[in-house]
């Protein structure tokens, strides 16, 4: 564990707590892409299948359980209690391409052709693009609530900091895995426009609005 990874994990934790707070406080899931939330649920379920086969640490297990449980809870609540608060007509990104593309990528690019490893690799490729429906929805509406922008910033910073962690781990331990590194880079590049608007507007107290 190093400081980049710890802060990354805490940012990820914070992002979910901010999202839960947003939904509870505004009593609405407006502005949140259900499709992105569904993709994150698939990401965590497929990645943490090793929960039952590999023990790393209490920290590792607790975080995995939290990420699966919270993403499941959000998907469930968006379908139930908050169903009427968000508009599916705005959430029109075709996730079939993301689900299929990640499957193809994991079948071509993986380190071992085993059940667990293929699902783990699938989750890595899928996570890289899981934010696209959310970003697509925001580009259509042209704006976001400030709390939603904070949620997205924390979520984007998490994978961005993981990229820094991988460079640090390579330099200090010689540990290197190019698949998550590449996927983390792709995700960070997809976030570039969002980060720009976040730093230039939201951090200065203005509303998140696309030019």
């Amino acid at each position: 564990m190093n400081v980049f990874r710890l802060v990354a994990d805490l940012m990820h934790l914070a992002s979910i707590l901010i999202l839960l707070l947003k939904i509870r406080k505004t009593r609405s899931a407006a502005g949140i892409s259900f499709k992105s939330q569904l993709l994150y649920l698939i990401v965590f379920v497929t990645r943490y299948l090793d929960l039952f086969t590999h023990w790393v640490s209490l920290y590792n297990t607790a975080m995995k359980v939290f990420f699966i449980a919270s993403s499941g809870y959000i998907v469930y609540q968006m379908q139930r209690r908050y169903r009427a608060t968000w508009d599916p007509a705005l959430d029109t990104f075709r996730i079939e391409f993301l689900l299929g593309g990640a499957a193809v990528m994991s079948l071509i690019f993986h380190t071992k052709f085993t059940f667990l490893e293929l699902f783990w690799t699938y989750s890595i490729w899928l996570e890289a693009v899981a934010i696209l429906p959310q970003l697509f929805q925001m580009s259509r509406t042209g704006e976001a609530e400030t709390i939603t922008a904070h949620y997205l910033f924390a979520l984007g910073a998490y994978r961005g900091l993981y990229v820094v962690n991988w460079i640090y781990r390579y330099a200090t331990e010689g540990y290197w895995e190019w698949i998550p590194f590449l996927a983390g880079m792709v995700q960070t590049v997809l976030y570039a426009d969002f980060f720009y608007v976040y730093f230039s507007r939201v951090m200065r107290g203005k509303k998140f609005e696309l030019p």
Binding site: D50, T53, V56, F67, Y162
Partner: peptide
């Protein structure tokens, strides 16, 4: 030896 790749990250 395990044929599984070890992942210690989240």
């Amino acid at each position: 030896a395990s044929t599984q790749v070890w992942h210690d990250e989240l």
